[in-house]
Design a protein around this nucleic acid. Structure first.
Lengths: 109, 109
DNA sequence: AATCATTATCGTAATATTGCAATATACAAA
DNA sequence: TTTGTATATTGCAATATTACGATAATGATT
């Protein structure tokens, strides 16, 4: 097949998977890291930082945006991409709960 | 094309992306959640929990194992899969640093 | 209006992922 | 040794991802 059977899993499981999948490429990690460490968020700057062609970077930005991890605001002639506060914190919280569960568990192997 | 250009990114970026990618499927999230919430870790139990065919589950287990997130120990006739303590904590730490950076940043949009 | 700069989309090729039936392997028990 | 049980691998089809050149679309500037 090749299509994920999302129907068989909970909404939360699909949600975490969507976020994780969005971060599942080094270029997208690099974009997120850039947005975290700089005040600039102009698309053109991101394209210059990422060692891939402009259409490819645009595509990665789109995926991050679709996952809700970033949002784009028109800034004069260009576009300013930023971490989406709400989704990012939601992701942090959901993932955090996984790690907390681990700390509490007794390991069996 | 179709092949990620890992050479162009840092080792750390590739590492985070690998972990995130491994979690980028609801079935694999379900497997991790199961391992977190139960003492059992027998492969057969996992196969019964996940609503996919046994070979498919086996493949997902393999991917989690390749990413280093889980490990398998032979337990008599079957195999016990567990969270890999070392990698899991490494992942928690690396991801955590991303979220910490966010809390400190000034948002520009 | 014409031009330039910025970003998105299209089209396409290469590769990867998802899923399962069929089969193989490995080990325990009878 | 044969049979059963548990897990992995193979092979294949459908779909998704990655990447980029070419091109379109948008908005600013002249």
């Amino acid at each position: 097949m090749g299509a994920t059977k999302t129907d068989h899993f909970t909404e939360k499981q699909n949600e975490i998977a969507t976020f994780a999948k969005a971060l599942g490429h080094p270029a997208r990690i690099a974009i997120i890291e850039y947005l975290l460490k700089t005040d600039s968020c102009i698309c053109g700057d991101i394209v210059n930082i990422i060692p891939l062609a402009q259409p490819t970077v645009s595509q990665h930005l789109k995926e991050l945006k679709n996952a809700g991890l970033i949002k784009g605001n028109i800034e004069g002639n260009s576009i300013c991409y930023c971490i989406d506060d709400k989704t990012w914190k939601k992701f942090e919280k959901t993932l955090g709960s996984l790690f907390i569960k681990y700390d509490l568990q007794k390991k069996c192997c």
